[in-house]
Amino acid sequence: MNDAMKDLTRFPVDDADLARLRSRLADDAAASDILDVAYRTVDSPIGPLLLAATQKGLVRVAFDLEDFDTVLTALADKVSPRVLESRHRLDAVATELDEYFAGRRQEFDLPLDFAMSSGFRQDVQRYLPHIGYGQTQSYRQVAEGVGNPKAVRAVGTACATNPLPVVVPCHRVLRSDGSLGGYLGGLEAKSLLLELESTSGG
């Protein structure tokens, strides 16, 4: 009987035991090359966030209001059904997010996987990190930046469906009149992110 099975025979099983089992399962799955999408949740000033990564990089950041189970199902459908919680695989992401929310980081230095987007939406999402910390652009300016000045509405859709919010800063895109526009995490979250950047030396 292996150690994981021995742990299962101990009753009652507490949270620490479950955490160790999950960690061991994730390690075994990764070692056997059967873990395609690792995920974990973190707390943040804009609420709980789900983080998910493939071998290529961070593939998803999701807000609590999106329903994490729905997000994980979409990842299983679009990326791979081999999805497993693995905290340590996302330690670097969690650390950089903590630094960002503490005002100590202005750029993310993480590999990204844009597998959840394609075509023009992905073009827009790849452009967004070029909008500097503490800066904003209008949907029209972004459309011009990606070489399609008439695609203002499509830029809005690309921002609204951004699978990597915060890290890929769609919150820095505003309407031409300076109003917030929409945001997947809600307007309160968008306001908080913009305020954070404006008061942290941006």
Rank of each mutant, 00 (worst) to 15 (best):
L128G: 07
S200L: 09
E66N: 05
S191E: 13
Y183P: 00
A38R: 03
D33E: 14
E144F: 02
G202V: 06
Y139H: 15
Q106G: 09
L110S: 05
A16Y: 09
P81S: 09
L18W: 15
V168G: 01
L164H: 03
S117H: 00
R172I: 10
P165V: 09
V168A: 05
H88V: 11
A16V: 12
S86P: 00
D91Y: 08
V166G: 00
R60Y: 02
D109Q: 13
L128R: 09
G57L: 07
D113M: 04
E197P: 04
F68R: 03
P111C: 05
A115Q: 12
P81D: 12
L18E: 13
Q55R: 12
G181A: 12
T70E: 13
N2P: 13
E144K: 06
L49H: 00
S138R: 11
R20Y: 02
G178R: 12
G119M: 12
G57A: 08
A30S: 13
G145M: 11
T157L: 15
A151L: 10
T9Y: 04
F108G: 04
R10V: 15
E144S: 10
A76M: 05
T95W: 02
L164G: 01
P163G: 08
Y127V: 08
D28A: 15
E195K: 01
Y183Q: 01
E195V: 06
T9D: 05
K6C: 03
R175H: 11
A38M: 06
D43P: 00
P163T: 13
E66L: 09
Y127F: 15
S138E: 14
L18K: 15
F68W: 12
V167M: 04
L18Q: 11
S179M: 10
E188I: 07
L8H: 02
C170Y: 04
A74H: 06
G178C: 04
D28M: 11
L192E: 15
Y100W: 11
L164I: 13
V61D: 00
G201A: 07
D123W: 11
L58G: 01
P129W: 11
L128Q: 10
A92C: 02
R140Q: 14
E107P: 00
D177Q: 07
D77C: 01
F68L: 11
R121Q: 13
M116V: 08
F114E: 09
S200V: 07
L164V: 13
A158Y: 01
S118C: 04
L25H: 06
E197C: 09
L128F: 08
A115M: 09
V124P: 00
